[in-house]
């Protein structure tokens, strides 16, 4: 495979040797790419100046691995933004980390999702806004929007407008429940026949917008993600704490 040029966001970094790292990028045109970045820790390597860090956006030149092979090769990284203001607030750090972890857990290599890349870049850009600091609710709202976009892109967005089994409209459902395995909201009768379900937060069940109840939306999407992935995200507990969501998992 030949070298390609793309933009990417650093999702994961791990040490490979004293001076080299394995970097996982979400690229716009080539999806998730796992690359060996040789010499990133040498201060003399101006191809990578000033090194690589998580959640950076940059222009990159790399060679993808063959689908059956291990790592590709990162040849160049030119940082465009490190989103410095995210790093000055723990809620933003955890929101951004949650987003990258969810992206990693739900996507595979060699599967481009340009819309997902744009959504992640937009989230990081919004979290980085200076001047008017985001409130904790503001951070949660932005994260919920991103997670919804992520789930839509990878085909796991739950149905929230009606009972996913019988089609009864949300407005006609009392004591609505949510089932990840069924893929959305359930009325009580359909929930009785579903082994896995939990009460849907009231604000979500009555169709409240994300801006009205961000913590409730994050809580239900986090529950859904946990079941889609098969484990909770590592950033989940801290993020729910920042969002003020009850951790009922």
């Amino acid at each position: 495979m030949s070298f390609v040029i793309d933009v990417g966001i650093v999702l994961r970094l791990s040490d490979y040797s004293e001076t080299s790292q394995i970097v996982t990028l979400l690229t716009r045109g080539h999806g998730v790419a796992r690359l060996l970045a040789k010499g990133t820790r040498r201060t003399t390597k101006d191809r990578f100046m000033p090194g690589l860090d998580l959640l950076e956006l940059g222009e990159t030149r790399f060679k993808l691995a063959r689908p059956d092979a291990g790592l590709g090769t990162l040849a160049e990284w030119k940082q465009q933004s490190a989103y410095p203001r995210i790093r000055s607030d723990l809620a933003r750090v955890y929101a951004a980390t949650y987003a990258t972890e969810a992206t990693l857990a739900t996507t595979t290599e060699h599967d481009p999702h340009p819309a997902l890349f744009d959504a992640l870049a937009a989230l990081l850009q919004t979290l980085d806004i200076a001047g008017e600091p985001l409130t904790p609710d503001g951070v949660t709202i932005e994260l919920v929007r991103f997670v919804s976009e992520l789930l839509r892109e990878v085909g796991f967005m739950p149905t929230m407008r009606a009972c996913v089994v019988c089609g009864k409209p949300r407005t006609a459902i009392a004591n609505a429940r949510f089932s990840s395995s069924r893929g959305g909201l359930l009325c009580v009768a359909c929930a009785a026949e579903t082994p896995e379900s939990r009460p849907a937060p009231e604000a979500v069940a009555r169709g409240g917008r994300v801006g009205e109840a961000p913590a409730a939306w994050l809580e239900i999407l986090d529950y859904h993600l946990t079941r889609v992935i098969g484990r909770p995200l590592r950033a989940s507990r801290q993020m729910l704490r920042f969002a003020g969501a009850a951790d009922k998992m």
Binding site: M49, K78, Q79, Q80
Partner: peptide, 13 residues
């Protein structure tokens, strides 16, 4: 960093 050149430094630095 000492030895770095402003021309090649990124915006964050």
């Amino acid at each position: 960093a000492p030895g770095a050149q402003i021309e090649y430094a990124n915006r964050h630095m």
